[in-house]
Write a protein that binds this DNA or RNA. Structure first.
Length: 505
RNA sequence: GCUCCGGUGGUGUAGCCCGGCCAAUCAUACGGGACUCUCGAUCCCGUGACCCGGGUUCAAAUCCCGGCCGGAGCACCA
């Protein structure tokens, strides 16, 4: 059987291997999302609705991936909707709109439709008017604190029972800029004795005298998320809503609107909070501040949990997808290590990453007793036949300080080159080239010839690591390579020295 | 405090709706071994969990009650 296999041509072997690994992938790939209740093939409409006040982060990725995955599962539609209706407290960033588009695309979740809430404020006004006319909404002129007292007491405020005409009039005044910020809001009538105070007559529109990055100073009355989202989900025909449980109460509020208009509320499911060990709690606004302070170099700083940063680090979209699909859509909070993402990514990247040497904290070593310079060829990949790279076996080489310290006085194999005995004084004694001479085990180390060592810095999540890389990496710009015995890294710059970004071990 | 929601190995997850086939799935992590001119990959093997207490039942991870723990919301933020 084995002999039979050996007799096959390389191509045939390749084919067998790939067929075998394909099968394995298929079974392993089963991060199946649970079925959606009430979902019909071709009818499902999902949406992801971020506020673009910064670039998408790992947190956003979950929303993008899970929603788009369900849309795909049911052959449905995936909508990207910008809930950008607060130009002050959660002010959108103009560039961020495009960042979301880019990252969705990159995550293999291209939206079938894109909606900008701020461009549809006029439409929300129409629905507001209808609610006022039906006496399901009213303009409330209570100061915030005063209303809070009514709410806590479960009592109607003085404005609650005014006529539709009066309310319409006040509404017009709001729109006309006759009221200052805080002087009037439009509230949806719910139930002042609702057991959950958060549901009692919630605010649908408020006055904000601030220009909006996308629509300028066209409006002074902006809808709140609950109103905007309620209307949009219906207008867009959203069938299923999947989002974080921080928005769980929204459903209770929004249902009133659906009831007043006689609409059906979409199926809602919430997932718990995700905490990633490696990234502390970083809010978008905190990151923004630290970028401005110069703590981070930008939104794609490798230390950040933004999609931009992960992409720069060389993560594959598919790995990120699998990572989130593996978390499922449970309502319990998860606290997960990035190691899981690393593992997913490694599976993809290992078979295509070219291998190179990177010597961090280099120590210069002179090899004594070596006869002549040798030309050495090393494979670009340990198991796949994708070519070789050339190194010169010279008398002067660099090895890392770690190896120097731990192998001092002992024999090691310079991978692909020769065996030496490391001396205490920064020198080494040549022992021969034969691999057989080298002890099997953990004594094969990587190295670099002085003449082919180029300065290299690696940006890691914990800071910068400096050393030398072999000049051959110049051919690997913009790709993920494995610096042997170090980590996978994405090479992003090769002029004037090499700069790479750490992906993962 | 009030209102919701959750608690399966170190971590994440399946199972829970419709009790038995669950001495509980898969992944990751960890430990051991094989292979390898990388500390990567691959291949074996192994460790390890149903929050606690009652109840219902012939039978409970699954149903009910109570407790404990955790989270979210209680904004003119999203």
């Amino acid at each position: 059987m084995i002999a039979e296999f050996e007799n096959l041509s390389e191509d045939e072997k390749e084919e067998l291997f790939s067929r075998y690994s394909e099968d394995k992938k298929e079974t392993r790939k089963s991060y199946q999302l649970p079925p959606l209740p009430n979902a019909e093939r071709g009818e499902v409409v999902m949406r992801f609705a971020p506020n673009p006040n910064g670039p998408p982060t790992l947190g956003s990725a979950r929303g993008i991936i899970v929603n788009s995955e369900y849309a795909r599962m049911y052959d449905g539609k995936f909508i990207l909707r910008f809930d950008d209706t607060d130009p002050r407290t959660k002010r959108p960033l103009l560039e961020a709109y495009d960042w979301y588009l880019e990252d969705c695309e990159w995550l293999n979740a291209r939206p079938d439709e894109i909606v900008y809430a701020s461009k549809r404020i006029g439409m929300y006004y129409d629905y507001a008017v209808r609610l006022i006319e039906m006496s399901h909404a009213y303009v409330c002129r209570c100061p915030r604190d005063e209303f809070k007292r009514y709410r806590d007491a479960g009592m109607a405020c003085p404005h609650r029972n005014r006529s539709a005409e009066e309310n319409l009039e006040d509404w017009e005044k709001m729109l006309g800029g006759e009221y200052a910020e805080g002087e009037a809001v439009l509230r949806i009538k719910t139930d002042m004795s609702h057991r959950d105070p958060a549901v009692r007559d919630w605010v649908a529109f408020r006055i904000i005298f601030s220009d909006h990055p996308l629509v300028g100073d066209e409006y002074v009355v902006y809808p709140t998320l609950d109103f905007e989202s309620a209307i949009e989900d219906h207008v867009l025909g959203v069938t299923h809503i999947l989002r974080g449980k921080d928005l769980a109460d929204s459903e209770k509020r929004q249902r009133y609107i659906y009831q007043y208009f006689g609409w059906d509320y979409p199926v809602v499911r919430h997932w718990g909070r995700v905490k990633i060990h490696e990234f502390g709690k970083l809010s978008t606004s905190e990151i923004r501040k630290k970028i401005e302070e110069g703590v981070y170099a930008g939104w794609d700083d490798p230390r950040l949990p933004t999609i931009k940063a992960l992409r720069r680090r060389g993560f594959e979209a598919e790995a990120i997808r699998k990572f989130f699909l593996s978390l499922g859509v449970g309502e319990n909070d998860v606290s997960v290590s990035l190691k899981n993402l690393y593992a997913e990514n490694r599976k993809i990247v290992d078979e295509k990453a070219e291998r190179y040497f990177f010597v961090w904290s280099p120590v210069r070593i002179e090899i004594e007793g070596m006869e002549a310079v040798e030309d050495i060829e090393l494979p670009l990949h340990p198991s796949r036949n994708i070519g070789t790279r050339k190194l010169r076996g010279e008398r002067v080489v660099y090895i890392t300080r770690d190896d120097y310290e731990s192998f001092k006085g002992r024999e090691v194999r310079l991978k692909g080159f020769c065996n030496v005995k490391i001396q205490e004084n920064g020198k080494a004694v040549y022992l021969g080239d034969e691999i057989e001479e080298a002890r099997k085990g953990r004594n094969i180390i990587h190295w670099l010839p002085e003449s082919q060592a180029v300065r290299c810095e690696v940006l890691t999540p914990d800071g910068k690591v400096e050393g030398f890389a072999e000049s051959n990496v110049r051919g690997a710009v913009n790709s993920v390579v494995q610096f042997e015995r170090y980590a996978f890294c994405r090479v992003e710059e090769v002029e004037r020295g090499v700069r790479a970004v750490y992906t993962h071990p």
